[in-house]
């Protein structure tokens, strides 16, 4: 399988995108913007159709329009501060309606359209691989450099702002990176399933991780495993890669949640058995001041 050039490119591009998209998904979910990836993929569809109509490279046009959509959603989100999901609905309607009209005008786009909608292994050419490499590198730098500020902003924007985080600019940069990752992921997983690559690994990681860093690492691990196994299954079964990857990620999520529930149930049973055999110690936490009172040491 890996002696084919196109499969090497697909595995390479898939790995890069899995890592970028999964970590992005953790932040998107926690900011309650899970549908943003879906919305931006629909907006980029308008770019692809527009590119075909204007005889511009559809991938590049989709990339540019996705970034423009990300910037637009950030401004609409500020206008509807308390209903941030409305911004997603508004921009999605604009993107999808433009895409439908431009598709009808650009007759030549229909043939290759299914590869944009559902993803295609052969769709990843060298230009797109270079684009993905650039996007993945940029996303990696962004998430590494801004991870602490992103954590604060994701938790609460107002406290982040008073802590000195430039929330407005950081949020805008985050949206632009989201747009770039979504547009770059389209050749592999397709417009319709791009959000699966972003959201499903994050959804599982958030459920089972003990901490924030662990959630990011687990999301990347699930994303990478899902994409590689999905690509391999897609090659073996001759199925569309987007749907195969999404289905495998969904199986990961269901199995992961079930395993988590089972572990919780077993943990509860063990606790109740232990509690039945011994008296639980009283642990009353109170405000204290170590400089004024002697406080017992609580370990390292």
């Amino acid at each position: 399988m890996l002696h084919y050039d196109f499969m090497q490119r697909a595995f390479c591009a898939g790995a890069l995108l899995a890592l970028a998209a999964s970590s992005l998904g953790v932040y998107l979910m926690l900011r309650r913007q899970a549908l943003m990836a879906d919305m931006l993929s629909h907006v980029s569809l308008a770019g692809i159709a527009g590119g075909a109509y204007l005889h511009v490279n559809p991938t590049v046009a989709g990339f540019v329009v996705a970034i423009a959509g990300a910037v637009a959603v950030e401004y609409v989100r500020r206008a509807y501060r308390t209903f941030s999901e409305i911004s997603v609905a508004i921009i999605m309607v604009g993107g999808l309606s433009s895409a439908v009209i431009l598709m009808s005008l650009a007759g030549n786009v229909n043939k290759s359209f299914s590869s944009y909608l559902f993803g295609s292994l052969v769709a990843v050419n060298r230009t797109e691989l270079t684009l993905m490499l650039g996007v993945a590198a940029l996303a990696a730098v962004f998430f590494l450099v801004c991870r602490r500020a992103l954590y604060q902003m994701t938790f609460d924007e107002e406290t982040a702002q008073t802590s000195g985080v430039p929330v407005r600019w950081l949020s805008l940069a985050f949206s632009v990176v989201t747009g770039m990752v979504v547009a770059a992921a389209m050749p592999i997983v397709g417009v319709l399933l791009v959000s699966a690559l972003i959201i499903l690994p994050a959804a599982l990681a958030i459920r089972i991780a003990s901490g924030f860093t662990a959630a990011l690492v687990l999301a990347m691990l699930f994303g990478l495993t899902g994409v590689w196994s999905g690509l391999a299954a897609s090659f073996a079964l001759s199925t569309p890669p987007g749907g195969t990857i999404a289905l495998i990620l969904l199986v990961f999520l269901v199995v992961g949640i079930a395993a988590r529930k089972l572990a919780t149930m077993l943990g509860k049973r063990r606790t109740s058995v232990r509690e039945a055999s011994e008296q639980p110690p009283l642990n009353e936490a109170r405000y204290s001041n170590p400089s004024l009172s002697t406080h017992e040491s609580g370990g390292s």
């Binding site: 926690l30 954590y151 901490g211 959630a215």
Partner: peptide
């Protein structure tokens, strides 16, 4: 958000 995956120390 109670789903926020963070430890108290973090």
């Amino acid at each position: 958000n109670s789903a926020f995956p963070s430890t108290v120390l973090e």
